[in-house]
Design a binder for these strands. Structure first.
Length: 115
DNA sequence: ATTCTTACA
DNA sequence: TGTAAGGA
């Protein structure tokens, strides 16, 4: 297609399965996250420092990397702050939401152990 | 070029 | 929080 050496299979823009594959592999640096979300790097580092979000950890990795789930949390925190919640309140709401989501899917998981 | 920590306004 | 310094 393009001239490049992208040895990738085509990704259909209206295929949800491709979206999942893409999102599952997505790993982004702090600069890109800041650029796209509009949240300053300074703030992202602060949130991580406070434990609201976590960067991908790996031996040898010195720079912050964020995955799909963390980016979703980042967007949620931003919304909550815009709505007027304090950072601490936002942190509690995010934690509560993650617990709800995890416990809920854990139940589905147990009902579908056959998968 | 990009990110990191530390520190000060 | 924004920004600057100085190292990786």
């Amino acid at each position: 297609m393009s001239k490049k050496t992208s040895q990738h299979h085509d990704v259909n823009p209206i295929n949800a399965l491709d979206d999942h594959e893409f999102l599952a592999k997505l790993v982004v640096g702090i600069g890109e996250v800041a650029e796209i979300t509009g949240i300053p790097q300074r703030q992202l580092r602060y949130w991580q420092e406070k434990g609201l979000i976590k960067a991908i950890d790996g031996t040898g990795i010195t720079t912050r990397r964020f995955n799909y789930l963390e980016i979703k949390k980042i967007l949620l925190i931003k919304e909550l702050l815009d709505e007027g919640f304090t950072l601490e309140a936002a942190a509690n709401k995010v934690e509560k939401r993650m617990e709800l989501i995890n416990s809920t899917f854990k139940k589905f998981k147990n009902r579908h152990k056959d998968i």
